[in-house]
Design a protein around this nucleic acid. Structure first.
Lengths: 182, 182
DNA sequence: GAACTATACGGAGACACTCTCCGTTTGGCA
DNA sequence: TGCCAAACGGAGAGTGTCTCCGTATAGTTC
């Protein structure tokens, strides 16, 4: 890739991160291009669709997901606490930008979504938590990590959409945890 | 209201029902106006925002909600079956049009949403189910109907968004049911 | 049934966003 | 230094939202 292309790509990702943080994932892409100081054509050449741009933005975010799972898993305690800690972490991770929870959770399980790899990272991290709980025979029965992602993602979507705070989300996560635990 | 205004209002609601059914709640409002055979100005005079139009569309739907609750509540059976029957009914009710689950669930609990009365109807119907289950001491502890609406609405949103079918939704509803039942 | 007026209508048009096309510029190599 | 494939940029076409205001008409009054 030519040096100027490389540079513009970086600028676009940086600008997108900023604009999405301020205005959510529905923000104007022209605004992103303007903020990056490039033409609209350049944006669309690098990122043919909004989802592809999102995927690029979330590249470094995957590390955060894995680190978060590490951190939750070292914590000793009751299975319910572990699960709830992960659920709250999970909600935080996918709620970085307005519109994020719905976007990510909607793509969960879709083989050919542009952000598929991101969903896989989330599902894999959740699977690690599931594995731990199954080791301890704490789960009611086998449950797919993807299903847990959908449940918690659903709560996060509703919270994002309806402007619910942590305190309002907590009891919802508790219901899901209780539904899953033995 | 003048006779022509009344007539146009009716036509707009009918057209909107049709267009939203075909294209989801994000469909073009100009298309609705065109389909109703009126100008855009007429549409926006009657319904200043998309949500107000949605509210009008859902007017008759409230009866369906209440009838559905009646039907579920006459059914004799285990609490879990009752609850799951209501959950599936609930998902069906709010999934009439694409985008519906997110819209309705996001407004749940918002005192001044244009579709507030519709959310109240849903919450009230859910409350009837909760009351029945509490009579039978089948619930783990007191749970707000609104919270149950958010949980099930979250699942419905994810299903709507990710194209999940009934079979994929069922186990998610079961987790919620198990989390709520004693 | 004619005149009047408050009410409602319609659609042009301003504004915003998406995405493409193509003339222009430039990085990097020979 | 010259060349050209690669990349750029922004005008503009297409689509949707929403408003404004000149025009039409329902309903009332005499």
């Amino acid at each position: 890739m030519r040096a100027d292309a490389q540079r513009n790509r970086g600028r676009l990702i940086e600008a997108a991160r900023e604009v999405f943080r301020e205005q959510g994932y529905d923000a104007s892409l022209d605004e992103v291009a303007k903020r990056a100081g490039v033409g609209a054509g350049t944006l669309y050449r690098h990122f043919p669709s909004r989802d592809v741009l999102m995927d690029a933005i979330l590249q470094s975010w995957v590390d955060r997901v894995n680190d978060a799972a590490d951190k939750v898993l070292v914590h000793e305690g009751a299975p319910r606490d572990l699960l709830l800690a992960w659920f709250e972490t999970y909600v935080g991770l996918i709620s970085m930008h307005k519109g994020g929870p719905a976007k990510i959770t909607g793509a969960m399980g879709d083989e050919k979504s542009p952000i598929m790899t991101k969903c896989q990272a989330l599902a894999a991290a959740t699977q690690r938590v599931v594995d731990r709980l199954e080791e301890e025979h704490a789960l009611r029965e086998h449950i797919e990590a993807v299903q847990m992602c959908r449940l918690v993602g659903g709560v996060a979507s509703v919270a994002d959409n309806g402007g619910l705070d942590r305190a309002a989300v907590r009891p919802l996560l508790e219901v899901i945890a209780d539904g899953v635990l033995a």
